[in-house]
C-alpha cells in the first residue's frame, strides 16, 4: 500500500516535470521558477482530486440508503382500525365551490287562455275540445340564494381537545409498540429490515397486478354521465401506503363538466386503493403519484 502511494507521488512528480516546459512558456517564467512551484501545485491538484473522490464516494453511499420508511404507517393503520378512531381524512378539503348562480328562472309564461271554441267542422262528429294548455313555468323567486358551504364530513364522535390528545398519545404508543413488534418479528425471521424487500418480486408483474386492481376499484365507483363517448379525463392521484387517497388533481379536463366531476367523484368514492404491504414496492410503484385516465366507451 505504501509502495502504491510512493509510486503515485513519483508518477505525479514526473508528470509535473514533464509539464514544466509547457507552463514556463505559458507563464513567461524560466523553468527553474516554474519548478519551484511544482510541489505546491501538485499538492493543490491532489487535494482537489481527493475532495472530488470523497464527494463521489459519499454520493454513491447515499443512494444505498433506504428511501422510504413506511411500514410504521402501515402498522399505524391497523391500530387505528382497532381503536375505531376516525381515519385521517386524506381527502382534500372540499374546495369552496363556485356558487351556482341564482339562476333566474323563466317567468311563467301565461299561455293565452284558449277560449272554448265551437267545433270547426260542422259535419261529422269530431269535435275539437277546447284545450286549455296552461304552461306557466315555475316562477323565479328573487330571494337571495342561501349559500350553504359544503360542509366537512361531520365527525362521528366529537372529541374534546383533552380527549383527543389523550387518544393521540395512546395511539402513538400503540403504533410504536406495533412498530417495534414488527421489527422484532422481522428480525426473528432473519429479514434485514434495512435491505430492499423486493428481492424475488417481479416489479413488472406487480405493476400490472396493481394497475388492474386499481382499475377495477375505480371502475366499480364510476358512474358515467350519458353521451360522453370519445372524451378523456386525466387525473393525477397521490396515494398513501395505507391505500388512502392523499390528493387528486385534474390534469386534463374532457370538456364536459359532468364527465370531469364523475371522474373526481369516482376516485373519491374509493374507500381504499389497493397498495402493496411492502414499503419498498409501494415506493417503486406509487412514488410520484399515478395517472388515472377515464375514457367512456359505448
Amino acid at each position: 500500500m505504501k509502495g502504491d502511494w510512493q509510486r503515485i507521488i513519483q508518477a505525479a512528480g514526473a508528470l509535473g516535470d514533464r509539464a514544466v516546459p509547457l507552463w514556463s512558456r505559458l507563464l513567461g517564467m524560466d523553468e527553474a521558477g516554474v519548478r519551484e512551484w511544482k510541489w505546491p501545485v501538485l499538492g493543490s491538484v491532489g487535494l482537489h482530486l481527493l475532495i472530488v473522490i470523497l464527494a463521489v464516494a459519499s454520493w454513491s453511499w447515499r443512494t444505498q440508503e433506504p428511501q422510504f420508511q413506511q411500514p410504521q404507517a402501515v402498522q399505524a393503520r391497523v391500530v387505528v382500525a382497532q381503536t375505531q378512531e376516525p381515519e385521517p381524512d386524506p381527502k382534500p378539503e372540499p374546495e369552496p365551490e363556485p356558487e351556482p348562480e341564482p339562476e333566474p328562472e323563466p317567468e311563467p309564461e301565461p299561455e293565452p287562455e284558449p277560449e272554448p271554441e265551437p267545433e270547426p267542422e260542422p259535419e261529422p262528429e269530431p269535435e275539437p275540445e277546447p284545450e286549455p294548455e296552461p304552461e306557466p313555468e315555475p316562477e323565479p323567486e328573487p330571494e337571495p340564494e342561501p349559500k350553504p358551504e359544503p360542509e366537512p364530513e361531520p365527525e362521528s364522535e366529537p372529541d374534546t381537545d383533552e380527549q383527543r390528545t389523550e387518544r393521540e398519545k395512546r395511539l402513538e404508543q400503540l403504533a410504536q409498540q406495533a412498530q417495534t413488534q414488527a421489527k422484532e418479528d422481522q428480525q426473528e425471521e432473519g429479514v434485514d429490515v434495512e435491505a430492499s424487500s423486493m428481492d424475488g418480486i417481479n416489479i413488472a408483474d406487480e405493476r400490472r397486478r396493481f394497475n388492474t386492481l386499481i382499475q377495477q376499484e375505480v371502475q366499480n365507483n364510476w358512474y358515467i354521465p350519458p353521451g360522453n363517448e370519445d372524451r378523456v379525463v386525466r387525473l393525477r392521484l397521490e396515494l398513501l401506503p395505507t391505500g388512502e387517497l392523499r390528493s387528486v388533481e385534474l390534469v386534463e379536463g374532457s370538456g364536459s363538466q359532468q364527465l370531469d366531476e364523475s371522474a373526481l367523484s369516482a376516485v373519491r368514492r374509493v374507500d381504499s386503493f389497493p397498495t402493496p404491504d411492502d414499503s419498498a414496492l409501494f415506493n417503486e410503484l406509487f412514488r410520484g403519484g399515478i395517472t388515472v385516465e377515464f375514457s367512456p366507451q359505448e
Binding site: E103, P138, E139, E145
Partner: peptide, 27 residues
Amino acid sequence: FDVSQQERLLGSRASAAPSELRTLAHH
C-alpha cells in the same frame, strides 16, 4: 349535492300555484 365531493351543485327556489305543482316538479 355531490356526495363524494361534498359539493353543492345546485340550489334554487321556485314557486307555483297549487294547480301547477306538477309543472313545478317537472321543472
